[in-house]
Design a binder for these strands. Sequence first.
RNA 1: UGGGGCGUAGCCAAGUGGUAAGGCACCGGGUUUUGAUCCCGGCAUUCGCAGGUUCGAAUCCUUCCGCCCCAGCCA
Length: 564
Amino acid sequence: MDIQENTQEKPLDFIRQIIADDLRTGKHTGTVTRFPPEPNGFLHIGHAKSICLNFGIALENNCPCHMRFDDTNPSKEESAYVESIMRDVKWLGFDWGKNLYYASDYFDQLYEYAVRLIQLGKAYVCDLTGEQIREYRGTLTEPGRESPYRNREAAENLDLFQRMRNGEFEEGSRVLRAKIDMASPNVNMRDPVIYRILKVSHHRTGDKWCIYPMYDYTHCLSDAIEGITHSLCTLEFEDHRPLYDWVLDILKTPCHPRQIEFARLNLTYTIMSKRKILQLVNGGHVQGWDDPRMLTISGLRRRGYSPASIRNFCNLIGIGKKESWIDMGILENAVRDDLNETAPRVMGVLEPLKVIIDNYPEGQVEEMEAQNHPQRPEMGTRMLPFAKELFIERSDFMEDPPKKFFRLGPGREVRLRYAYLIRFVSLVKNEATGEIQEIHCTYDPATKGGTTPDGRKVKGTIHWVSAAHALTCPVRLYDRLFLVANPDAEKDVDFKTYLNPDSMQILDNCRVEPILADMEPGTRVQFERQGYFCLDQIDSQKSRPVFNRIVTLRDSWVKEQAKE
RNA sequence: UGGGGCGUAGCCAAGUGGUAAGGCACCGGGUUUUGAUCCCGGCAUUCGCAGGUUCGAAUCCUUCCGCCCCAGCCA
């Protein structure tokens, strides 16, 4: 599959326009972008937007995109996350080649740069407590006050900073601050902390350091060290850009990347923050980070979303600065579009209702040829066993159907897909419950394969499986995790209030074609007339498949019913 | 009430002074052995509001309104 699909004729987004200009004017001869996750959690669909942007630009320009872990806070970060992030990015279809970096690789250089800052009189060691620093910072409307330690001599700062590094001071007792402007209307410029003492071992550097650089200081320098041309981040960093530029200007780095901010992804009927996702996992509301209802990359993968569908989705929604809410339907459509092209068709009965063909010979089995994809004959055909006892979908029969119901009912005839036309004869009910137990039909032997040699029309075609040959298996029907478009909308209502109690429905008496016994976990198929399903990669066993519903097919019948 | 951003259809989104692309949703119709797919048609006299400049404004200017972000030794 061409990973640059659909990127051609579209108008350029504002970032790609800037890049095109930079290339045209000769400011740059190529691009170097980067995806800089912090290894403190799992990637989700929002990260996919950034991944597709950064790696997409790289692909379009035949240039590198760096994978860089922003690992400057060892108290929150773990190598397990590093592994899962790399796996997810690869699964999405992107390749950073040799360009794997860690901000922690730059700790020595970052330290030297900090020393340089001190020598230039642009940084100082501050002994204020955290609380005092906050007080001195002022408020959004009032300027801050200068720290009493602000005017220490370079020599003293150098000595103190060295001793911070040596571990002579307690955590929290001192920090290194950039000396900028305590009266700046931008609070990020009011002498931001750039180094803090953290007596914690780091997942990569172990106990080599007990001081760690802060994001604002680290990120711009990491970008500069790597020769990044365009440093793309989300809107909330807009206010940090002056600091990004300040550090690089003061230090006169040979490379000064341009930071450009774009709006993060918001999707309806879900939540995107790491913190809230964590609450769902820890609170047992879902079954883990890879729960198929979650929009983590691992959840989407387990659900059965294809990488191409996620890339297409990211491509579709565009890049801009407007904070927008993308309808979940767009994501669902993106998988439908992809799977419609690629998924083989099979038949599966979710809620079986037994059908007995009265005039079909006892013990006879016929093989019916079925297409694996009606629009793509090159995908071949398969044989379906047909016999006297079948299962059809319970919802495909109605005792007293409305006129527009095109399926089976008293007096009606339907086509069994790829098999025969059958006509209703009678039904048997459970005396006690009133539930329909089985229905009896006759078939027309002249309609083998579902054809009508006499040219008669039947409105409905339904799916079926042979009772004796079908495989019984569980199917998990997933639905949206939340009942409302924006579970976060009200400040004083817990988002978990809006959890959809029916987001997962397990059916364990489903009947599917025997061919599915041999398919690999992870395989995606379309159950005709129902939706796209994926063999669960963890719970499926040989001859005992477990299916996850990825997404339903569009269904104009439910729409029709809703009109009443 | 400080600073930084953003307002084009129900939801996204092009548009960069020359008369509102496209997608989703929705509404019609056609094809169909999946009520799927596919195909055709409809869907903003108007771009947050009000003024101004101009032959001409979503695009330029001014005022106002609304929404988002920022006061971690998180990223």
